[in-house]
């Protein structure tokens, strides 16, 4: 859930099975499927994307998402990771 809420707050670009796609993040769901507007790709190399406006990318095919460091508070991220780790280990103790 962490990354779901994390990406919801961002506008950025991303990269895939060797294809790089840049765009404005429009929406994201729990599978980390992503929708980008204002899509920019290397159309000369990938004519597959001629005339493309917005794109839905299946989360499972994403390798990396490159983020703008200025729009992310890494301290908050680390805290959120610890909190999520704590929460899930708590679940396990309760479930035992």
């Amino acid at each position: 859930m962490l990354f779901f809420s994390f990406f919801k707050t961002l506008v950025d670009q991303e990269l895939k099975n060797d294809v790089k796609i840049t765009g404005t993040l429009r929406s994201i769901d729990q599978y980390l499927n992503i929708k980008l507007d204002n899509v920019q790709t290397d159309v000369a190399k990938y004519p597959h994307f001629v005339a493309v406006r917005s794109v839905f990318i299946r989360g499972s095919t994403i390798r990396y998402i490159h983020l703008n460091p200025n729009s992310v508070d890494t301290n908050l991220l680390q805290d959120a990771s610890r909190r999520e780790a704590m929460a899930s280990s708590g679940d396990k103790i309760v479930g035992r």
Binding site: D18, V50, R53, V55, R58, T61
Partner: peptide, 25 residues
């Protein structure tokens, strides 16, 4: 499925694909 995108039909129709040579993805 990797990606699904909509496209601008005008730009698409005015693209001459017979002149486009590209490597397979």
């Amino acid at each position: 499925v990797v990606s699904i995108s909509d496209y601008d039909e005008q730009v698409e129709d005015s693209t001459d694909y017979s002149k486009i040579f590209a490597e397979k993805l």
